[in-house]
Design a protein around this nucleic acid. Structure first.
Lengths: 339, 339
DNA sequence: CTGAAAGCGCTTACAG
DNA sequence: CTGAAAGCGCTTACAG
């Protein structure tokens, strides 16, 4: 019942505890026979090193804190899963914190700090500059996933949302629609802002106005926004939604109203979550380069842990347009588009 | 840069470190003035207690390990989110481990043990009896979420899958279908077995055979299984799918083949994930009592942590049938059913 | 190659 | 109410 410690091993073997420690850590100069003896006994007795004690002594916890909200939206679980399993194989453990999307993560940080996380990854939550500063004072590197700080003080890796917005605008323009709209995500996110502003700008350059409907990245919001859009006298025939879930809600609303998606009207999403490919939706969207984003974040974070602070690092990774069936087909006599 | 410790506070204040510790822990007999002085300084200097040191000293980490696979399936993220946020408010932190569903969690356990988790929650992964034993030797309580060990050696809380299977059989029988089928999940899970066996048994009692198609809890498997089913000369008109995602795949396959779900054919799922309510699917299903399951698991686990081992504890919580549109309407002249 | 010892930052009897 | 001290279980210079 009482856990076996390195002292127990030492006593049993009649050697010093430091020797046991070295035998187990496997890399210091040590007699092969001693090492084998120790490791053998450790195995036999089911010895498990105490990570807390080790951390205290080495001053590193081998813990990465992950702060995540919206775990429930289909995009993030995938991220979380990949992140954890990659970290595990690299020898790190993850301490998970969840928060709701509206709030900044300030109240969580003390907890992260108590557990001496060696690094911190924040997905889909905001970090006040005050906290960014606390972290840097503690020497804890942080990288933001899929959003970036207004002041660019923290490292971040994002999908190139502006590029994506532009791509979609061009794509839609190429199909000669007449009225454009955007169904938004939460307004205070860089993700939403970047997607919208780039899309809108491009369309305006081409001489179109774009209608804006509020949303919050959810199915329900997409559904409701679409209903409002359809109720207008100047209902749009080309709609870019802040993310896939929103687009799926919009599609269901359109259908319920009897409008044919991909024929009467075009709807585009962003993310390429699995549901986008489901038969009922067949949604044209921008695929987020998740794997690359994950690898990138990890690389930046671990690098920062190794080599101490090295300033902030922003990375924008381009997504790719996935053409499916929710956009009207290209007309042969389409009007010419400049890009 | 160097983190401030209780010794720093003590020196600054000219008092002993033990007094600082007591002032901060907030509950021992201590002079009010001293306490205030200490807490004030702590705040000012941004002191953060070191949880590693505390754990080492108190012999409890305040860490709960959560092992989860299939994080990517829509059911689990919700569970994970709830679990973490509830644990947080109760003063626990969560150490997250992910594994793939096929494997047992044996290789992860050493890591869990190193970090001295006070308790362990395993969702959707199997635990070998050898490991269950190791855990109990270490005195680490464990509860399985949504599955149970064959030997019932570990505590577990599950949805009452057998009850659910029966409910669905009865419901379907009440609508007078003529040929029944089951699209399975992974065969080695208690969840799949319980849902299928109870469903099948009930139907057989009523004099029907049930066709079985293989699956693995995924959209793709549901889609493919449905295609196989439809290709048969004796294609079924009532299909229970191991979970909602499978059912959704099945619906898309049916539709693609031109069969009307809810009219020509009935499809029922299990879980009630958000997508089940989406307009395109409108799936009749059994709602898992997730909140209750979560509360129950937590209760059992935390109780076991407090009061040392108290044997295993199995809890089955009934789900509730959510009627939507994927099942044929009740015929007035339906044939009589005994339940 | 091995041992004795200090130290990581706390908590908590034990005295006073 | 406070302090001195031991102890939690490791790692890692420092000697030898």
């Amino acid at each position: 019942m009482a856990r076996v410690t390195s002292v127990d091993l030492a006593q049993e073997l009649g050697i010093s505890q430091s020797t046991v420690s070295r035998a187990l850590s496997n890399d210091v100069r040590i007699a092969v026979k001693t090492r084998e003896k120790v490791q053998h006994l450790a195995l036999k007795l089911g010895y498990t090193p105490n990570a807390m004690a080790r951390s205290l002594s080495t001053q590193q916890s081998k813990l990465i804190g992950i702060v995540m909200s919206e775990m429930t939206s289909p995009f993030y679980p995938f991220v979380l899963e990949k992140l954890t399993s990659k970290l595990h194989t690299l020898g790190w453990r993850v301490l998970l914190f969840s928060t709701d999307a509206e709030h900044e993560v300030d109240d969580l940080l003390p907890l992260v700090l108590e557990y001496q996380c060696d690094g911190l990854l924040i997905a889909s939550a905001r970090l006040s500059s005050h906290m960014a500063e606390t972290l840097s004072r503690h020497g804890t590197p942080v990288v933001l996933f899929n959003r970036y700080a207004a002041d660019a003080s923290s490292s971040a890796v994002c999908c190139d949302n502006r590029g994506g917005g532009r791509t979609i605008a061009d794509y839609l323009l190429g199909r000669s629609h007449s009225r454009y709209a955007y169904i938004a995500g939460r307004e205070n996110t860089s993700t939403n802002r970047d997607r919208e502003s780039s899309y809108t700008l491009r369309l305006e350059q081409a001489g179109f106005m774009v209608q804006h409907e509020a949303g919050n990245f959810t199915y329900e919001a997409g559904f409701a926004a679409m209903q409002r859009l359809l109720a207008r006298s100047d209902a749009p025939d080309a709609i870019f939604c802040a993310n896939d879930i929103t687009a799926i809600g919009a599609i269901d609303a359109a259908r319920e109203a009897g409008v044919q998606v991909g024929t009467d009207i075009s709807i585009v999403g962003f993310d390429d979550i699995p549901m986008a490919a489901w038969g009922a939706y067949n949604l044209t969207t921008i695929r987020q380069p998740v794997e690359t984003m994950i690898d990138s974040s990890l690389q930046i974070l671990l690098e920062a842990i190794e080599n101490a602070p090295l300033g902030s690092n922003l990375r924008f990774i381009p997504g790719v347009l996935i053409e499916r069936g929710s956009v009207k087909a290209l007309k042969t006599r389409a009007k010419k588009v400049k890009s």
